[in-house]
């Protein structure tokens, strides 16, 4: 049942209709840990917080939406919903209540992937708490990568490692699922284990990788590597830009 349409901020719409010169002048109000700050429109949450004078020691990383370090929660003024996002990827809007999650103390099992027994219950052995899942789907709703988190936990629970690995493939380990979970499951670590198990025991070994590793062991690239080690910065740069790249 739809309670209300997703809160599309009127401010965002208004801002987009404005001419660039006007937008440059526009300031919005954000509330960082409860205190109001005026920041220019168009910044990401992370930059808005920096503009307001906060410095990120933790909770910031690649600033490009890949590392998952800047997981954040926010709420729009007047809305009951607690939203989740990556601070480096989300535009700060007028009336946002912001804070930052610097670190998620999630449960992480220690294991030696080489020694794991890849049977049907191996994930359940290391993370028995996945049996506490109540299918509330908060994890899926909170995922900034739009993954079907609940479904991969459920796949892991029923021993379908391959499905769990496939569904969690794009996980960036931000931990927002874990923040919201009422069963205290560390979804992202479960997904990582599933992918590791899949890579190690289920997926076929790529032939080209085996061959390349053999070549490396035989010392085929030693000479080229030695050359790189002593190369000066200018030549390194040149070589870098001339490298083989995937055709776009």
């Amino acid at each position: 049942m739809k309670i209300m349409e997703k809160n599309s901020s009127a401010t965002e719409k208004e801002m987009k209709e404005k001419k660039p010169a006007e937008v440059e002048q526009a300031f919005i109000s954000v509330y960082i840990m409860g205190k109001e700050h005026r920041v220019p429109f168009g910044l990401t949450i992370m930059k808005a917080m920096e503009y307001a004078g906060y410095r990120f020691v933790r909770g910031a990383g690649c600033r490009a939406g890949f590392c998952g370090a800047c997981a954040t929660i926010y709420r729009m003024k007047g809305d009951y919903k607690l939203e989740t996002a990556l601070a480096c990827q989300t535009t700060a809007l007028d009336g946002m209540y912001l804070t930052q999650i610097p670190f998620m103390p999630a449960n992480k099992s220690v294991y030696d992937i080489e020694k794991l027994n890849p049977d049907i219950n191996s994930i359940l052995h290391l993370y028995p708490e996945i049996a506490r899942c109540v299918s509330c789907n908060m994890c899926t709703r909170s995922c900034p990568q739009d993954l079907e988190v609940m479904d991969y936990i459920q796949a892991a629970l029923r021993g379908d490692t391959e499905e769990a690995a496939r569904l969690s493939f794009d996980c960036i380990q931000c931990g927002l699922c874990t923040v919201r979970c009422m069963a205290e499951i560390s979804h992202y670590h479960v997904g990582q284990l599933a992918r590791r198990l899949y890579g190690k025991y289920y997926s076929p070994t790529p032939r080209h990788l085996t061959e390349r590793l053999e070549e490396m062991d035989e010392g085929k690239y030693d000479e080229a590597m030695d050359e790189l080690v002593v190369m000066d910065k200018e030549n390194l740069k040149k070589k870098y830009w001339k490298r083989d790249m995937e055709v776009k």
């Binding site: 219950n121 359940l124 052995h125 028995p128 049996a131 506490r132 629970l157 029923r158 021993g159």
Partner: peptide, 12 residues
Amino acid sequence: LKDLPQIALVCN
């Protein structure tokens, strides 16, 4: 844990 099926863990 190695022995227990998920049906036992979930309901417990």
